[in-house]
Design a protein around this nucleic acid. Structure first.
Lengths: 277, 277
DNA sequence: GTAATAGTGTCTGTAAGACAGTATTGC
DNA sequence: GCAATACTGTCTTACAGACACTATTAC
């Protein structure tokens, strides 16, 4: 995440300023003095906003970053790939809707899906982002270990794991959401233990290093990576007696599991150290 | 920035799972196979969501962090303090709405307000966060230099700068929004040049250091802070011949302006180095 | 002069980059 | 044996924390 205002924030701030005009009911925020708004809770008194969630779900497969996408079966953007997502139900928070959609699209049980890492990314609200109507979307990022291909009925039937950077143009503004999500997870790998969310419950340091190399697109020095991870308190914990053969050859690698720390001190900065988010 | 899911994400994920039920029109994201949704763009077909922006506007005054708050003039929470904010207009993005509200509540001209740092924080969507109806709010954080007390007509008449941590309980879920915003700016000071947004165009290193000390609530070693800031490329630029007396006594301090860098390499980590957001 | 602030220089400990070398496996 | 992977150790450089010291102002 850069400190630059995003293009959405920069765009057209002047003409959009309408002074103190209030068009709807009293805001949650300010104490409006417009008498018309005091009791104005007629839903038809303000423009119809639909609110959805969109999911950028990443995994690492065969040393490549993959994204969960859905092929659209109807216009607009019929036949194009899009991020999974859906409407927020009347009694749901956005986070609950995102977790429900994640379970639906991956075909996983609610219990399994509940354990996956899910995090709010940002909200996309350009008035023309959906040609049909005004749709505000709260985007979420999920990091999952290498899962089986989505299957089962319902929404999961249309979902596929697609290699990142070979997904082509996505529907709506999903290209930008995906790019923002990728920037964010790259930055979070630096100062959090998030990389373990891409790994199975027990993993080798080689697998963990491959997560960093895959997301960042760089090669890391193996001895230094190992030293850094093992000396960062709470990042990983050794699994007693565990060992696994990784590439068919070579010395079996010791196993670790995610540690209790959620922040890395000091951070594991990437080589050229360009921050985003 | 922690990796923990926020309480909103954690809450009640299981029971909320409704399988593949779709209640509204086709989502922006997935290709729904529900026939009823293909042409279902009747706004009354899905629950009425209001979408607002809320602003957490910070400044540093007299070595203390202050927040811009508004006293509510009506129920609910009549008489309580709240974050400024308002509805997104039909043809506005959330970012445009936030900048418009910022200009209104601070009483500044649109030009001045357009130059202020404004950044999306996150979206708050608990179904019961507003007792009147379903309101989803996109929160923004703004960092401004020490401005005159808000004045002028309209919304700014109700706005005040209130010292942070003496603001008491805020209306709605604004306590949490404010806490999230404070966490976020604290974290962003570490790895961005954001602190200069709290300073006037030309500032001394003592003023810049005070921003860090105020937001982080720590004392920093002055020589080391100076060395760090001056050796970080693009953080600040010297103003030729500039000097200013700061505390009435002592050697006049050289002046600097914000540099072109928006990311700090390596980051300026806070002493105990606890990351949030 | 003292108090207060700005600025310089130096020592030290920690951690990262580079990279040589050893260990254990499959073939 | 060789190739491949895991692991250990060492040297060097960069940078942050600590802190002594000098400089310039108001009083």
């Amino acid at each position: 995440m850069t400190m630059e205002p995003t293009s959405e924030e920069q765009a057209n701030t002047g003409p959009a300023d309408t002074g103190s005009t209030r068009t709807g009911p009293a805001s949650t925020g300010p104490a409006s003095t417009d008498p018309a708004s005091v009791e104005g809770y007629d839903p038809r008194a303000f423009p119809p906003f639909a609110v959805t969630v969109d999911l950028a779900v990443f995994t690492v497969r065969d040393g490549t970053l993959h994204v969960l996408l859905i092929e659209r079966g109807q216009d607009p953007y019929k036949g194009a790939w899009a991020l999974p997502g859906g409407f927020i139900l009347p009694r749901e928070s956005a986070g609950q809707a995102a977790r429900r959609e994640l379970a639906e699209e991956t075909g996983l049980s609610a219990d399994t899906a509940a354990a996956l890492h899910l995090e709010q990314l940002r909200t996309y609200s350009d008035p023309d982002r959906d040609p049909r109507m005004r749709v505000v979307s709260v985007a979420y990022t999920a990091l999952v270990p290498d899962l089986p291909e989505p299957h089962g009925g319902g929404d999961a039937a249309h979902a596929r794991w697609v290699p990142h950077d070979s997904q082509g143009r996505l529907a709506f503004d999903h290209d930008r959401i995906l790019a923002d999500a990728h920037d964010r997870i790259g930055a979070k790998l630096e100062y959090t233990g998030l990389a373990t969310a891409f790994c199975p419950a027990e993993f080798t340091l080689g697998e963990l290093r491959q997560v960093y190399e895959t997301v960042w697109g760089v090669e890391l020095d193996r001895p230094n990576f190992r030293r850094k991870v093992l000396t960062t308190p709470g990042f990983v914990e050794a699994v007693q007696g565990g060992a696994r053969l990784t590439g068919g050859r070579g010395k079996p690698a010791a196993l670790y599991r995610a540690g209790p720390a959620n922040a890395l001190h000091p951070p594991l900065l990437r080589p050229e150290g360009r921050h985003t988010t």
